[in-house]
Simulated scan of single mutants.
Amino acid sequence: MAETRAWKLLLPRQLRHLPADLAGVIGVVILTNLAALLPVVSDTPVRIVAGLVFVLFIPGYAFIAALFPEAGSGPTADEENGTNPQADGIDGIERTALSFGLSIALVPLVGLVLNFTPWGIRLLPILVSLSGLTLVLTAVAAVRRWALPADERFRVPYRTWLSAGRDELFSPASRTDAVLNVLLVLSILLAAASVGYAITVPKDGERFSEFYLLTEDEDGELVADGYPTEFRQGEGRSLIVGIGNQEHERTEYTVVAELQRVERVGNETQVRERSELRRFQPTLGHNETWQRQHEVTPGMTGDRLRLQYLLYRGSPPATVDQSTAYREVHLWVNVTG
């Protein structure tokens, strides 16, 4: 006990007297920032758990703590008569429910404001904004709570809860209570294990790869529009080739770009002449995106030539055509001499 008090004396007075629930809010803010930014922790379930608590509960709790620094209780006869000194406060259930509701309201508002700033809706701006807002509200809540008499301040009776829980678990009033306590503990452990398993071993969704072509507009933005269709032999025009890996594993790709002279025979399109323009061989992890500029310089001339990009997972086979490709995109172009 003496050692515990000794290290507390090293803290500033405001922190030493900070209410336990507000100290917990600051702790969750720090934990979430570390879990989201530290490379060692950012890929673990800790980031998901801390992030959910931070987004869905903490900002609202800090806001409610700032609005209602006084203790509260459920409706009583004294409250109806106006003689209850805690009538202006709210009880724990109301405080918890409002915390969830206000968090769900505050977080989108922060995102909306960020959307109109140069930083945009990204991880770091969201972390900084929500953390800053929560810490400011926590400071206001602490100041307002300190301004009240000690017996009117809201406090979380965690020592009472722990004592009551310990007595209920280890000193049950009857054998029936003991059996119910064991069942309750087993149910909580089972629920926690189920949630932990769902977080740590997520079910794989559909496996696929995105494959697309883009162009650059006048503002330098990449768009799926305005593709070049008129070329001159030997003169290059740019396209952007893109791949998105949603295969749930690291994947090696090969992209083959060809210019083809094709002929329609019945219901089939047959290639009469082909010219390979370039190959790309990127390797992507799951959920990674790859984009490269391709300067298309046609060597053959003609109308309605097919500029085709073929995507393969791994190395392509000896026969490179649409029937062997994993994905395919193409443009119809005209090339003059």
Rank of each mutant, 00 (worst) to 15 (best):
T83F: 05
D88V: 03
G234P: 02
Y326V: 03
V195Y: 07
L305H: 04
G196T: 12
M1C: 03
S174T: 14
P59L: 15
A6C: 01
V49K: 08
I48P: 01
V41S: 01
S42G: 02
A139V: 14
A105D: 02
L184N: 08
F57A: 04
I243V: 14
E268R: 15
E79N: 12
P298C: 12
A142D: 04
S103P: 05
L15V: 14
W146T: 06
V128A: 15
L284N: 01
D303M: 05
L169V: 15
A141H: 04
V182L: 10
Q260K: 03
R279K: 14
R155D: 15
L15S: 04
N33M: 15
S131E: 13
E80F: 04
L284W: 01
E252S: 11
E70C: 10
E273R: 08
L169I: 15
G27L: 04
V143C: 00
Q270N: 02
E268W: 09
V29E: 04
P19N: 09
Q270G: 02
S99Q: 13
G242A: 15
L38C: 12
G299S: 08
L56R: 06
Y212D: 13
F116G: 13
V41F: 09
L22N: 03
R327V: 02
Q14V: 10
G132R: 01
H286M: 01
T319I: 15
R47V: 00
R13F: 07
K203C: 00
G101V: 08
A2P: 01
V255E: 01
T289Q: 12
P149R: 15
T160Q: 13
R159G: 09
R264D: 04
A193T: 13
G302E: 06
L189C: 13
R207P: 00
L277M: 10
F170R: 01
A20M: 05
E235Y: 02
A23P: 00
E230W: 03
Y227G: 07
G89R: 07
D151A: 03
I58G: 00
E94A: 09
T117H: 06
G120I: 15
Q14D: 06
V28W: 10
R261D: 04
E221H: 00
L135G: 09
L148R: 13
E152R: 08
N84S: 12
R47K: 03
P59A: 14
E288A: 13
A192N: 07
E94D: 03
G92H: 07
T44N: 04
P125F: 06
D219T: 11
P202G: 14
P39Q: 03
T134C: 07
L239A: 02
Q322F: 13
E273F: 03
Q246F: 14
A97K: 04
H248A: 09
R274M: 06
H17C: 06
N84A: 06
A257S: 09
T134N: 04
A97D: 01
T200F: 10
R122T: 09
Y61H: 11
S275D: 08
A257V: 14
V256M: 08
F68K: 08
T269H: 05
Y212F: 14
L127I: 14
R47I: 00
G165I: 05
